[in-house]
Simulated scan of single mutants.
Amino acid sequence: MGSMTSIAMDVKYPDFFAGSYLVACKWDETVTSPLGHQHIWAVTSQGDPGASPSLAKIMENLEKDGVKVASQTLDPTQPQDQVDAQAAALITPDCSHYLTQYQGGSHRSTWQHAYTMQPALEWLFAQKKTDRIH
């Protein structure tokens, strides 16, 4: 329930955190506006029936509101250096919202991969509240 708590805090206190790493969570897709002013990297596996469609819809709604979202689908069976290279290639200075989906998998398998994606973690810890894009 960590990421659901994180997203709840992001919605209620949008200026509190410098960035959030949302791993395998779901949320009310109609309550996403406060997320548009933050730094967010969301990770899920396509085989997660709750988190995958929810995070995809949240990012879609943010894009409809004019927020730039960069997304990718990764093969979790690749060597980690290839996963990291693809994640690093996604990062651009003008983007503050990222969605990584692992092919297949499940709710549990997302956690097995998300915390080893080094570029995403480095990106998260490099965020500052003063760097808000919007």
Rank of each mutant, 00 (worst) to 15 (best):
M1P: 11
S3F: 07
M4Y: 09
S6W: 03
I7T: 01
I7P: 07
D10T: 11
D10V: 10
V11R: 00
V11E: 01
K12Y: 08
K12P: 01
Y13C: 04
P14A: 07
F16T: 15
F17M: 13
A18T: 06
A18P: 08
Y21S: 01
Y21F: 07
L22Q: 08
V23D: 11
A24V: 05
A24N: 03
K26P: 00
W27K: 15
T30Q: 11
T30W: 02
T32E: 06
S33K: 11
S33N: 02
S33R: 13
H37G: 13
H39D: 01
I40C: 00
I40Y: 00
W41H: 11
W41G: 08
T44V: 14
T44G: 12
S45W: 04
S45Q: 04
Q46H: 14
Q46K: 14
G47K: 06
P53Y: 02
P53S: 00
S54C: 03
S54D: 06
S54W: 09
S54T: 08
L55E: 15
A56S: 14
K57E: 14
K57L: 13
I58Q: 10
M59D: 13
M59S: 12
M59C: 14
L62Q: 06
D65I: 00
D65N: 03
V67F: 11
K68Q: 02
K68C: 00
V69S: 01
A70V: 04
A70T: 03
S71L: 08
Q72W: 00
Q72D: 05
Q72I: 14
Q72E: 11
T73G: 08
L74F: 03
P76K: 02
T77S: 09
T77E: 10
Q78K: 09
Q80S: 12
D81T: 15
D81L: 12
Q82H: 13
V83T: 12
D84N: 09
A85E: 11
A85W: 09
A88K: 10
L90N: 02
I91M: 05
P93N: 03
D94L: 05
L99T: 01
T100Y: 07
Q101Y: 06
Q101V: 11
Y102S: 13
Y102L: 12
G104S: 01
G105V: 07
S106E: 07
S106M: 09
S106T: 13
H107R: 05
H107A: 04
H107P: 01
H107K: 07
R108Q: 10
T110Q: 04
T110Y: 03
T110I: 02
W111R: 00
Y115G: 00
Y115C: 01
T116N: 15
M117Y: 15
M117C: 15
M117R: 15
M117W: 15
P119F: 08
A120N: 14
L121M: 02
W123P: 04
L124E: 00
L124Y: 00
F125T: 11
K128A: 03
K129P: 02
T130Q: 04
T130P: 00
D131Y: 06
R132V: 15
